[in-house]
Design a protein around this nucleic acid. Structure first.
Lengths: 112, 112
DNA sequence: GTCATAAGTTCCAAAACAAAACGTAGGGGC
DNA sequence: GCCCCTACGTTTTGTTTTGGAACTTATGAC
């Protein structure tokens, strides 16, 4: 089964995952909840490639989770802000944050 | 950056995602919360390939999210049950379930 | 003009995935 | 015994996605 087929699954969890069900997408949301909104911020913070980042942002905008907003017109620069739809996933990330703290302690020094 | 490198990330969300951060893994958890425990049940319910399923189950067991349990000794058959660690992710899936119901209505009839 | 900034795009090799067949170890019918 | 069934996987082959790094475009600062 493919990704795209998940969006019409009988199960609401599966449908949700068709939008946010990969690690990079969820890391973008984490950054949004931390107040980030710019392409370069996401790229640096998460360590994902610009290639993947661009693709994921596009899908999040298409799905209405983020909104692409012009924040400078010369030169044209866009950033990404959470919609209400996007905000409502915050509790899921909160659970993951608490779970990570409890069950996945850092084993060695790490960066980014 | 790769998956494996995420497990020592400074961010607890990223560390959590290093274990459950792909859609198939989260669908396995969904099935567990629905009471399923067998290989064939997961395979049929989620629509993922057996190949991927076997790999994901192995990692979930290694990470202590599921426990592989012998339920028949002749022939040897194993199934997979949630540990306390696995149980504690349930609220995250609950958020995704509610979100999916609210924001991702089914557009056409779909199976499995 | 030259450098820096910021949001992407393009290219190619490497890794992950999908689909389907195969393996293994019994159990049950006959 | 022999054949088919169940159930947990593994293997194989070809396609898709990802990772990494360089490149583009538009503009402001020097």
């Amino acid at each position: 089964m493919k990704w795209s087929e998940l969006s019409d699954n009988w199960c609401p969890v599966a449908r949700t995952l068709s939008v946010v069900g990969d690690r990079w997408t969820l890391l973008i949301l984490r950054d949004c909840y931390l107040g980030k909104s710019r392409f370069e911020e996401f790229a640096e913070s998460s360590g994902m490639t610009r290639h993947i980042l661009a693709e994921r942002l596009k899908r999040l905008v298409e799905e209405g989770v983020l909104e692409r907003r012009l924040y400078s017109s010369a030169p044209s620069r866009y950033d990404y802000v959470l919609t209400e739809k996007g905000e409502e996933l915050r509790p899921a990330l909160k659970v993951m944050k608490d779970w990570g703290k409890k069950y996945m302690p850092v084993r060695r020094e790490a960066k980014a």
